[in-house]
């Protein structure tokens, strides 16, 4: 037993309450803690947007492009909408797109990676070049091309983001499956008479969950970032849905009048993406 093992076990055994336990675990891993706090903050904003936001995000007023005031903390945009409320509602859009895109990526990528890694042989020979081909293309450019073809709608963006992100998951899962399948417990299952489907379902997949969960969070951050970039290029969620990327784009025309119109949603994108990224990389 190494010294760190011993000390870690001791730390845990000498703890009294759950709060203290959680704090000890979190303070030992600052990346995870910061990531969780950021993500929790954004998720809270998204869920409780109607209660937090002082105004309706789509309601225009005659006060266009005013600077920060007591009523409009981040000022208003070119249509007189409250920027602060739109940033808060924008959390919903970003979270749905980010998580949705990552879900699609895992749904597509994980089975492909699992099949390629566990079955190997011809399946692997066919799937690996496909994965590599997609990985070689820049995600944003690929997403741009497809969005231009299929048109920008909420659903399409989620699907397209999933479609450009799946190779990342697939490659990761394949590598992990290659490692897990050489473990003696997989041999043990084979000796017990288990077939490949049983082994993938009962042994390989559960042992991949941790890395997939970590990569999932990282993909969420990629998706949020990419969708913001798409919106900035004018191929994002159609108006009037409040969307951070789109807000940065519109605001960039009025930077000298109300800079917060661009900066606030930009910062929100950064905070959310960094939060998910820290969370994922810490677990990994």
């Amino acid at each position: 037993m190494t010294a760190t093992d011993t000390t870690r076990r001791l730390e845990i055994s000498s703890i009294k309450s759950f709060g203290e336990y959680a704090w000890k675990r979190l303070s030992a891993r600052p990346r995870l803690t910061v990531g969780c706090i950021l993500v929790a903050f954004v998720v809270f904003m998204g869920i409780f947007a109607p209660w937090i936001a002082p105004n309706d995000p789509s309601e225009s007023s005659i006060n266009v492009l005013i600077g920060p005031t007591h009523a409009n903390w981040f000022g208003t945009d070119d249509l007189g909408r409250d920027v602060f409320s739109r940033v808060i509602y924008g959390a919903r859009t970003s979270l749905i797109i980010g998580i949705g895109g990552a879900v699609v990526a895992v749904l597509v990528g994980a089975p492909i990676g699992l099949l390629a890694g566990y079955l190997g042989g011809v399946v692997d020979l066919i799937l690996v070049p496909v994965i590599d081909l997609f990985l070689a293309m820049p995600a944003l450019v690929l997403a741009l091309i497809i969005i231009t073809m299929v048109g920008a709608s909420f659903g399409n963006i989620v699907l397209v983001l999933g479609f450009v992100m799946w190779p990342i998951i697939a490659r990761l899962v394949r590598g992990q499956a290659l490692t897990v399948k050489t473990q003696p417990f997989v041999d043990a299952a084979k000796v017990a008479g288990a077939g490949p489907i049983w082994i993938m379902r009962k042994h390989v997949w559960p042992n991949l969950m941790r890395v997939i969960a970590a990569q999932f969070a990282i993909i969420v951050s990629f998706c949020i970032f990419t969708s913001a970039s798409l919106s900035f290029l004018g191929l994002g969620v159609p108006p009037p849905t409040p969307d951070w990327g789109g807000m940065v784009r519109t605001g960039s025309d009025f930077l000298s009048i109300n800079p917060l119109m661009s900066l606030a949603p930009g910062l929100a994108v950064a905070v959310t993406a960094v939060g998910f990224y820290l969370m994922g990389s810490a677990v990994e």
Binding site: Q183, P184, F185, D187, A188, A189, K202, H203, P206, N207
Partner: peptide, 8 residues
């Protein structure tokens, strides 16, 4: 250790 699935 390695011959037992850690998740079971």
């Amino acid at each position: 250790y390695a011959s037992l699935d850690p998740r079971m």
